[in-house]
Amino acid sequence: MVSAARTLKPEPFAAGGALAVREVTHRFELEGKPLPVLDRITLDVAPGEFVALLGPSGCGKSTLLRLVAGLEPPSSGSLVFDGATIAGPDPSRVVVFQDPTLFPWRTVEANVALGLEAQGLLKTHRHRIAEALKLVGLAEFASAYPHQLSGGMAQRAALARALVNEPRLLILDEPLGKLDSLTRLAMQSELARLWAEAGFSALLVTHDVEEALILADRVVVLSGRPARILAEIEVTEARPRARDGAALVALRRDILGLLA
């Protein structure tokens, strides 16, 4: 069903973009005192690569994502996406937040339409809405309101809202953090499938070691605040990955050792 939808599509999803984070340092002002959050972060995401950022909560992972999304400028350092310095938000780098933040006054369909509407593409690209909803399995809930959805469904809708823009980099800010464990497992497989099919690059923030190992090509381990990169770990295991595979269990032990 999904593959049929894909072959019908005139244009394929744009391929993944390349992100280069160079010596990025960031501070907040807290009661007049500077609070360092990021300490000289240098990081690359290759086109089509899935990178997970792992670190203790409150270490500044989400701040890094806000910088990559262009929602805030860094205090110093540079962020470059596909050769251009990131100066502001752009629909080629879409964020899925921890809260689905669906607009409660819009139906699921109208929420998914947001990006196209904002970019003035609604007339020419309306067909993408149904495709995105189908892709995340919400086709039947197009006319539902957000309050009628379960937590998992709301997060799927938020995913569809991001994917409809055919992003070259999908920025995932603990998108599964608030889901119950069963839904979480299902959504992890879903994310892996969507990433494999669509070919975007992905930057995922999580504090779940297993989630990072299941999904990512590379896991970047960050320290507590201000965040520095402690280690970068390649995960070469073939997909789909078994949670209890010997290689993943060993990597998990290493990472937990780093974070302890």
Binding site: G70, L71, G88, P89, D90, P91, V95, F97, A118
Partner: peptide, 19 residues
């Protein structure tokens, strides 16, 4: 959060106010 979402989806100021 609503503004963040709309901005990352490509919204301009008019969209942020009106929509």
């Amino acid at each position: 959060g609503y503004y963040d979402v709309a901005r990352t989806l490509g919204a301009n100021r008019a969209f942020l106010v009106l929509k």
